[in-house]
Simulated assay, not measured.
Amino acid sequence: MAGYAVILAMFVIGCFAIDRSMPNLKGMRWLKSAFALAFAGIVLFSARSYTHLFFIVSLTNLSLVMTYVLLHQAICEVLERPNHQIRISMAVVVFNILACVDFTLVHPNFSYFSYAFSTTAAVQIALSAYVLFRHYPPLLRGPAMFAGGIMATLASIHVVRAIVTIFLGPPHTDLTHPYLFQSFFTLVHCMLGISAGLSFVWLSVCAQRLNLQTLALTDGLTGLLNRRAFEEALQRELTYSNRHGKALGLVLVDLDFFKIINDTYGHPIGDEVIRRVSAVLQCTTRGSDALARFGGEEFTMLLRDTDSMQAAMVAERIRHSIEMMDNLPVSLNITASVGVAVSTFGDTSETLLKHSDEALYRSKRAGRNMVSIHSDSTLERVYLPAPQSRHAFLSPHR
């Protein structure tokens, strides 16, 4: 028990050091509190010869149960999940307190108390295992499954203890001198508890790294890919297209006269317009199409396995969707100029971007609010859909 207390103390100190060096690491404040309570419980139990049994049982077991509750809260915070199980956790705490009172003041039966504590602990730990197994982000699968496995094992140990207590029971009722199985359970419980804490630290560090990667590759205003991430995606998709002989469409969208909006109404209104447009673009493209804010009021997207006509249809649908946007701030009406380029074998990311940019400026020079396509022969032409077939470009399918 003394060795376990030393290990817990070192773990708590380590958590404080990690939290100090990485203050944005999610869940660490809950983890520190959880294992500080566990350490306090061990210290209280060590003073059992000098304290009334009621205080030993009540405070020690309450600290252990609250350790599981706080650890569950830490897991929810790291996985960015609301703690929908908070009522169950509170019920577990209340039931444990009542069991402590009953054991020390009414029915001093160790078998009953051991069963009650193990059952409530198993329920609380199982909740954490459920959240880890069911609600992890795909990129956190490894650490989440590992932590969930440890929590599931810890819950199973408590279930085994409860079953053994029911059918065998301890040879005596003296809590301060545990029998052989109780000593073995305490050892395994200590080992799994430390393992759960270490697995949580791993999960939290992986989640922090994932968040940093997301921040580095996404635009903070819209949540779309940023220019750096888009250029990396463009290079990958071009390599794939050239290898398999498939065309890759590149659409460049620029909001018309956007500088006037910023100068007239201020940047907050301009930012809101950018957010609304990004939402429209996400609704008018496939999930497999890479969509990015290329800079300022420019957006760009990659269209996999798309020829010139299909890319033109998508571009016209986008242009029309932006033109028809309503409920914009201060009753604004906005339009967009669009440039389209489709890759041919041997194209590089630089040449494809150059072709789409040339097509975009052709749309601007021709009067804006239109789609221009860079043809395979490197000649630019303006794409103007016939009025009678305009509905074809509004179709959600292509």
Rank of each mutant, 00 (worst) to 15 (best):
E380H: 13
M151D: 13
H267G: 00
G27H: 01
K26E: 09
D376T: 04
L139S: 12
V253M: 00
P138K: 12
K32G: 06
E237K: 13
L248G: 07
N369E: 08
P138M: 10
P143N: 07
S278W: 04
H172G: 15
C100V: 06
S308M: 11
E350S: 07
V251Q: 01
C76P: 07
I322K: 04
Y265K: 01
G287E: 14
Y179G: 13
M324H: 08
I150A: 08
V6H: 10
F45S: 14
A312Y: 05
R236Q: 10
K246A: 12
E358W: 10
R227N: 06
G287C: 11
L175V: 15
L168R: 10
P387C: 02
Y50R: 08
V205R: 02
S377A: 11
R134N: 06
A129Y: 08
F299P: 02
V12R: 00
S195R: 01
V69R: 00
S204Q: 01
N24G: 13
R227L: 07
P268H: 13
Q182Y: 11
A311K: 01
M309Y: 10
F185W: 09
V382C: 10
S128F: 06
H320T: 09
F294I: 03
Q73D: 12
V314R: 04
R141L: 10
S49N: 09
I75A: 13
D326G: 06
L217G: 14
N327S: 13
N109G: 08
G245M: 12
M191W: 05
A5C: 12
M370P: 01
R161C: 11
V382S: 07
T51P: 04
K32I: 13
H391K: 14
L98G: 11
A336N: 04
V69Y: 04
Q388H: 11
L62K: 03
